[in-house]
Design a protein around this nucleic acid. Structure first.
Length: 671
DNA sequence: CGGCATACG
DNA sequence: CGTA
DNA sequence: GCCG
């Protein structure tokens, strides 16, 4: 019941696209009962403009004729009106004496000619509907026969595992308890230690996948070629009278019409699947739903499902680029990379808890996500995975093979089996994970690094912070800075076996920073810009990136030296430790390095797919390569610093040469 | 039903 | 295998 | 999981 609530949607969207509902309105039809537009004999264009006009006047539209108080259509006779209603599952008896416009008697439905609306829209003022009414009926129960409707997903009431033991965080591990780790299980995990690593049949991560499969696929048909948001005037879809179901259906239909009024973004209408070719802002309208998908994606990560990761990443990136709050799963299913599964998740999400106008929607949820958040397995694996130097495999080993459940377990039973960097990762677990880096601190760190580079290598060294900072995030997990120098000659010359002049430079710069006291640990120092540096002799292909086209990288732990103790804490430096990556690029690689290190991940993957498809090139942050010849594509990514080009300019030129076109870093937040 | 980004230690 |  |  109460199906005709206010449309619980704020059409105001952060970006562009004026909404008809926002237009200054002289004509105000908001007091009218819900209006249903009969699509019969109307073109889609006509229908659409009528909808827009009505919505612009604040009228309440519904796509459920059963809820309508007024039905408007190309109908001229009483009998026709009655039949149109009946054809849509609305049974009624004529009310003689009639009633007049405006009033909304319960259970009454009036069929009105279109002229009524067009006249109002032309005049800009309300018009008595009386003279246009062709039929007034009183709704009655249909003769028997009930139709099956959409099934509501069962809620709640699902496996409630005995969860309970909290492992209160464990805090940063400060103690280095020595312990033999040969007998992994002893004393730990009370028998849980036997669970299999590879195929834990009872694993919630596995079950979550199965659950998902069982759900009705809930597919929405999509058009070939140009894809439009499905229009409900399509007969097949219309056939079903969804009434007799409380709530949702009515809102669904009602909301649905709103979805049709929005300008379809190009990437949707053109079915454009490369996230590098469209804007993806940091804070998209559907960020809450996205965060739930990210949780599911993480579950896929933790269950070693690489393809699931790709699939969810694609969907997330697509939704993140969508400039409107999604209203229905049908609307969602028109986005590239979002089909049955994704839209069925949204269906569950949007119906999980009603959200009213003005409210945040973060009380909505998805069942499998709740299960994940409640499961010890998921939350513990996630925690282990958060240790720098611990990947999925190791996290699973900790959990399933060793039976560990907390950081304390790791320290107590496994410390000596950890690699050096893992030990560092554990030691600073909290600082790395909980304490994000404010932008101002990122900038300070960058200044110090650039200064160090200039000190050891001259004033022409320049740098640019990439990563999340460059994409506009207010807080960063780490600092990624790309350094370069405009003179090729600096990177030529001797090539020991170990890899290029760039490595020497990064060594000198890090040395300077260490000496100055900023670096507490060096996790890695050497070749590889992360996404590749060039190595020669791939096969026969000459090409040869020389070592002068090689990136170098340092991964550091950093700590601000200036410490102002709040008196009682003492003089020890308690500033949080920070993860800092320094990438050193010769000028020939500067553009690709910056583009490659700015991210986000899905943007990068799609960029590589696009460049491969469009040109047959291979992109990595050390250069652009022709796959056939193996040759480096000339000029791409070269920094013309000697000619006064800036680093950002260089990246811009590269993006254009790649056929991608310029995209602001702030618009590369593919989630 | 194959493909899904890429490279390095 | 881990990192990005 | 989605696409061609």
């Amino acid at each position: 019941m109460a199906s005709t609530t206010q449309i619980p949607i704020d059409l105001t969207t952060p970006s562009s696209s004026p909404s008809p509902a926002e237009a200054d309105r002289v004509l105000d039809l908001s007091h009218l009962p819900p209006i249903y537009l009969l699509p019969t004999r109307l073109s889609e264009v006509t229908l659409h403009s009528l909808e827009q006009g009505l919505l612009g006047a604040g009228a309440l539209l519904t796509y459920n004729p059963a809820e309508a108080g007024v039905v408007v259509g190309d109908v001229n006779t009483k009998r026709r009106g009655l039949l149109e209603l009946r054809g849509r599952g609305v049974w009624s008896e004529e009310v003689i004496g009639g009633v007049d416009g405006g009033g909304e008697e319960e259970g009454l439905v009036k069929v009105v000619r279109i002229k009524w609306i067009t006249e109002m829209l032309e005049k800009g003022e309300e018009v008595e509907m009386g003279r246009w009414v062709v039929y007034v009926g009183k709704k009655v129960a249909p003769p028997v026969v009930k139709e099956e409707g959409e099934k509501e997903e069962g809620e709640k009431e699902e496996g409630e595992k005995e969860e309970g033991d909290d492992h209160g965080e464990g805090g940063p591990a400060k103690k280095k308890v020595k312990r033999e780790i040969g007998e992994a299980g002893d004393g730990v995990g009370d028998g849980k230690a036997t669970a299999s690593l590879k195929s834990p049949g009872q694993s919630i991560l596995e079950r979550a996948k199965l659950d998902a499969q069982e759900q009705s696929p809930h597919r929405y048909h999509r058009g070939r070629g140009t894809r439009h948001i499905r229009h409900d005037s399509e007969p097949s879809r219309r056939a079903r009278p969804p009434l007799l179901h409380h709530t949702s259906t009515g809102e669904f239909e009602q909301i649905h019409i709103l979805a049709q009024l929005r300008t379809v973004p190009d990437y949707v209408s053109q079915n454009l699947k490369y996230s590098c070719l469209r804007d993806t802002p940091l804070k998209p309208p559907n960020s809450h739903f996205i965060s739930l998908l990210q949780t599911i994606r993480l579950a896929r990560t933790l269950s070693l499902d690489a393809i699931g990761i790709r699939a969810y990443s694609t969907a997330i990136a697509s939704i993140a680029a969508y400039p409107y709050p999604l209203l229905t799963s049908a609307e969602l299913s028109t986005l590239p990379g979002c089909d049955g599964k994704t839209s069925s998740l949204f269906h569950e999400y949007i119906h999980s808890t009603p959200t009213f106008a003005g409210e945040e929607d973060d009380n909505r949820t998805i069942h499998v996500v709740q299960e994940l958040e409640a499961s010890e397995e998921f939350t513990t694996l996630r925690m282990f995975y958060g240790i720098w130097g611990v990947g999925v495999h190791t996290a699973r080993e900790f959990y399933f093979k060793n039976g560990w459940r907390s950081l304390d377990d790791v320290v107590e039973f496994g410390w000596d089996s950890l690699s050096r960097v893992q030990q560092i990762g554990v030691k600073y677990y909290e600082e790395f994970n909980e304490h994000k880096i404010p932008r101002a601190e990122v900038e300070r760190i960058a200044d110090i690094i650039i200064s160090a580079a200039r000190k050891v290598g001259g004033e022409k060294w320049d740098g640019i912070v990439c990563g999340g900072y460059r994409r506009g995030k207010g807080q960063s997990g780490d600092v990624d800075i790309v350094l370069s120098h405009p003179e090729e000659s600096l990177f030529e010359g001797n090539v020991g076996g170990k890899g290029g002049v760039a490595v020497e430079w990064v060594g000198r710069i890090v040395g300077e920073l260490e000496t100055a006291g900023w670096v507490t640990h060096t996790l890695y120092l050497g070749r590889g810009g992360g996404f590749g540096s060039q190595r020669i002799d791939h096969t026969t292909t000459t090409t040869a990136a020389h070592d002068k086209d090689t990136l170098a990288k340092a991964m550091l732990v950093w700590q601000e030296q200036e410490y102002n103790p709040p008196a009682e804490l003492g003089e020890k430096n308690r500033n949080p430790h920070r993860r800092v990556d320094i990438i050193l690029a010769p000028p020939s690689c500067a553009g690709t390095a910056i583009l490659g290190w700015t991210g986000a991940t899905t943007f990068e993957r799609d960029l590589r797919r696009f460049v491969e498809k469009r040109w047959g090139w291979k992109f990595d942050s050390g250069g652009v390569w022709d796959r056939r010849t193996g040759e480096r594509v000339k000029g791409l990514g070269d920094w013309r610093g000697m000619e006064g080009e800036g680093l950002v300019e260089c990246e811009k030129r590269l993006l254009e040469e790649l056929g991608v076109g310029w995209r602001e870093p702030e618009m590369r937040n593919t989630g």
